[in-house]
Design a protein around this nucleic acid. Sequence first.
DNA 1: CGACGATTTGAAATCAGTCAAGAGCAGTGG
DNA 2: CCACTGCTCTTGACTGATTTCAAATCGTCG
Lengths: 253, 253
Amino acid sequence: MSQPLTLAPMLRKLELWTALNTADQAAVLPLPHIIRRVRAHEFIVREDDRPRHSCLLLSGFAFRHKIAGNGGRQIFSIHMRGDIVDLHNSMLRRADHNVQALTDVEAAFIPVAAIDDLVVSHPAVAKAMWYDTLVDAAIFREWTLNVGRRDARTRMAHMLCEFALRLHVAGLGERMNYTLPMTQEQLGDALALTTVHVNRMLRSLEKDGFIERTQRSVRIVDFQLLSRIGDFDARYLHLEQAERDETTIGTGS
Amino acid sequence: MSQPLTLAPMLRKLELWTALNTADQAAVLPLPHIIRRVRAHEFIVREDDRPRHSCLLLSGFAFRHKIAGNGGRQIFSIHMRGDIVDLHNSMLRRADHNVQALTDVEAAFIPVAAIDDLVVSHPAVAKAMWYDTLVDAAIFREWTLNVGRRDARTRMAHMLCEFALRLHVAGLGERMNYTLPMTQEQLGDALALTTVHVNRMLRSLEKDGFIERTQRSVRIVDFQLLSRIGDFDARYLHLEQAERDETTIGTGS
DNA sequence: CGACGATTTGAAATCAGTCAAGAGCAGTGG
DNA sequence: CCACTGCTCTTGACTGATTTCAAATCGTCG
């Protein structure tokens, strides 16, 4: 059961969305949970499971995806520290997609029943979690737009911008300079492109001076510029509150 | 403020997801609201608005969409009677996408503040609404998969299956025989295809005997078969409860 | 009847996919 | 310490599904 502050990243995430009073905070932190390490590539939830736990990421990266009948894989989202990664599946009772570890992961598994009780007794927490779901949904919409209506290069640039911002907000990644937690194949499955084409688009962005790269590490030369190239407008991430007390990420200074 | 049963379709929808006791029902029905007619093509919410009402569809169809920088439009979902069509935008406080009437629409506009109060005083209702958001998100994921990983014909067939089922559940559409509320251009924006290609795919499905069509009306010859063609598996709609007491829709009898 | 939007069809162009192969890099074991 | 293995990244040539462009037909409504 470990120290009482293990679930602090969850509180941090929820408070991005709504202010929580002391009583609410005091209800979240002592939620029962089990810490477990999950190896890269292991499944956290499988489609059709009936999950009995919700999973809070403490370190590492995970992703949601689904396999089409023709074998194609579509990745829906990438998750990082503080994300409650299968609130969707566990609240719906029956998983409609897979959640898999991208890297080695440390996670807190919270019994669904405990969350069920919590949301009844603490409406403000329920609202924060609901809000979290709403933001997830907003990101899904943006990804649909990305895949459906943007060309390959724009899509790629858009993804790089989203990563930069989300890593920054999660307190990972050093501003405009971060390491992608995924291979080009996985990037392809998120963008609905082939590995080959992902590679070409990355090189194209590099050649044109929008980014610098070595292996997985990416340096965004000018965030504003890449945003324009990637048709990226951060509003869909609903981070207004989070950004209030941050220096603007776009200035690069 | 009209009769006390105007909001019954909302109750019906929420009870697809969770049982509500008499007190909860009695809290939903008298929510303050204004009935308004909205003409086809009119906007219900615009990106960047700060909506002060949530909108329950009583009749007609509406859709959510967003315009990319290159002018392309991506439709995220189609809504029908009983759908609470901008819970997303109104709860997030700042709209990140547009909601527009597809046909002439009759809708009940409920003040956001009233819903805010309701979810604090009635946790079961809050949970049902949250669940509704979760199902919306599940549908967004499936659409991303559709657009990202299925070819044009499969995508088209998938959409026709989803419509059949959802119209049926909403108590509209006559089983395997319904009228599409949208033009081929709008279908294209939902499937991320051009009008021309939508037309070709429809004709192809028709030629091969999977559907019959006249104008907007569609008859699905064999639902099981079209499901196979469209890689359609209804589980993402999370209708288990709803289907429990329905005769199987697939048998066509 | 005329007009306008929606549907249909054909031909040409293109973006991204497929196929194939080589290069780089990390970990393993001899 | 180096060869071997396996994965990821990179590149080129070719293919093909879908788009683009253009024009004809259909339907509905004033």
